[in-house]
Write a protein that binds this DNA or RNA. Structure first.
Length: 439
RNA sequence: GCCCUGGUAGUGUAGUGGCCUAUCAUCCCAGCCUGUCGAGCUGGGGACUCGGAUUCAAAUUCCGGCCGGGGCGCCA
């Protein structure tokens, strides 16, 4: 208390070394717990790197002691005091306060405990996400997420990809099919992009050749599952002058490998989460759709040729593939009828579309695209879409469009599989789902 | 959108017609305690989702709303 301190923090909890013992330091953070024994009290202070112990002695500073033990949990304080070695404290040292400041007192009771001995529902946690995120095991997910995204940039740039940012406000629904969010754009109607699909394809007509974007997907589908969000992020990538979708799959599997590898180096976070990340083997198995149907039928599924895989079939395939030693695998050569209009057909019935699956869950989907404008128009009509709604897109195909392909790869889905998280909402800071719009 | 399921203190829960003045833990408040680290002990505080209906009697049964959870469809 008393005169204010020069700086709120000279050290984070984990940055104090034996060299600092016997010296004056300042620490700041959230009051995680107060254990008042009577004439001595222990305050557990938490910062982004961990916790430390502030030890108050009544005899030494009666007034300061009273104020210290009167702080509410989760208040933000800064403490200046002597850093003293102690075998009895967790980190090997404790801080004997000389003065402290309450920077922000927390109200009581807390809507959600940070270290309470009871579990809370996800809904309660999300309603109080700012407190939920104070937990090291929740922060760990997002620290790993940062690393994974860094690995995306690093790998793709090493492969000469250019990072782009395409519009999220668009004039017409990008791909047809899924529902889009409508919004007012001055006197016009506009939509939130369900993906950068059409834009990244148009960029293939520019000579940039290889582009990617960490994109937002906005989807107005009223799904209610553990693996869907109405607002999610993805790596969206497109590359030109490919010979076939195989070129795209090679980039994708290497990308996944590099992301996985980077995550495996987050030892501290993985320890907090009690997870082990085992590197997948390259290359991933390519499994043609025809073979998928055979495998599924042989194992009791009634799926018939031409159908897309349902959740149950996907899961069953995941089990079959795991027995064969494949956690990751591509499903290739899908029937053209289950793929979007821009997917390159192959022969009469097939396409150059693929999905990347991990343990029975779809992580990414991609294809070689159609680059011939007449074929593209034909496919639009076959998919009950009006080429007139796609004029600005189709224009890019009329003045020199190289063969190309790409994929969309969900980042939250990836984290779910990487960290074995059961609900996708855990993988995004502030999830948007069918019902949730706040916080 | 469809199917199943649930809603009890701040947070989690027990209770399935009267024994409920509602259980337990956590939490909050007060007190005791000089080495806590899931601190301990003593005392105190706090709740039946909302609106109707049935019944002598409803947290408990029925109907509707609102809000969750799980599954499916669809997808990333």
């Amino acid at each position: 208390m008393g005169e204010s301190m020069k700086s709120y923090r000279s050290h984070y909890s984990k940055d104090v070394t034996t060299e600092d013992y016997g010296k004056k330091i300042t620490v700041a953070g959230w009051v995680e717990d107060i254990r008042n024994i009577g004439s001595i009290a222990f305050i557990i202070l938490r910062d982004r790197k961990g916790t430390l112990q502030v030890t108050g002695l009544k005899k030494q500073h009666p007034e300061l002691f009273e104020k210290l033990v009167g702080i509410s949990r989760e208040s933000v304080i800064a403490v200046e005091g002597l850093c003293k070695a102690s075998d009895k404290a967790r980190n090997g040292y404790e801080v004997i306060p000389e003065k402290f400041e309450v920077l922000s007192a927390a109200e009581t009771p807390l809507p959600l405990g940070v270290v309470d001995k009871v579990e809370s529902d996800l809904d309660t946690r999300l309603d109080n996400r700012f407190i939920d995120l104070r937990k090291p095991e929740i922060q760990a997910i997002f620290k790993i997420r940062t690393q994974v995204i860094a690995a995306i940039h690093e790998y793709l740039k090493s492969q000469s990809f250019i990072e782009v940012h395409t519009p999220n406000i668009i004039a017409s629904s990008s791909e047809g099919g899924t529902d889009v969010f409508k919004l007012k754009y001055f006197e016009k109607e506009a939509f939130l992009a369900q993906s950068p699909q059409l834009y990244k394809q148009m960029l293939m007509a520019t000579g940039l050749d290889r582009v990617y974007e960490i994109a937002w997907y906005f989807r107005a589908e009223e799904h209610n599952t553990r693996r869907h969000l109405n607002e999610s992020t993805a790596v969206d990538l497109e590359m030109a002058f490919i010979n076939s979708e195989e070129d795209v799959m090679k980039i994708l599997e290497n990308l996944v490998y590099n992301m996985w590898k980077r995550a495996s180096k987050c030892t501290e976070e993985l320890k907090i989460l009690d997870k082990k990340v085992v590197l997948p083997k390259l290359p991933f198995k390519r499994l043609p759709y025809d073979e998928v149907i055979k495998k599924l039928n042989k194992n009791g599924s009634k799926i018939t040729w031409g159908e897309d895989l349902g959740t149950e079939d996907e899961r069953l395939l995941g089990e079959i593939m795991k027995k064969e030693g494949h956690e990751f695998y591509f499903i290739t050569k899908y029937p053209i009828e289950v793929k979007q209009f821009y997917t390159m057909p192959e022969g009469e019935k097939y396409s150059r579309g693929f999905d990347l699956e991990c343990k029975g869950v779809e992580l990414a989907s991609g294809s070689q695209r159609i680059h011939d404008v007449e074929l593209l128009k034909k496919r639009l009509k076959e998919c009950d879409l009006d080429p007139k709604d796609f004029e600005s897109y189709l224009k890019a195909f009329r003045f020199g469009m190289p063969p190309h392909g790409g994929f969309g790869f969900g980042i939250e889905r990836f984290l779910m599989e990487l960290l074995e998280i059961k609900n996708i909402r855990e993988c995004i800071l502030f999830p948007r789902d069918r019902a949730r719009l706040t916080p």
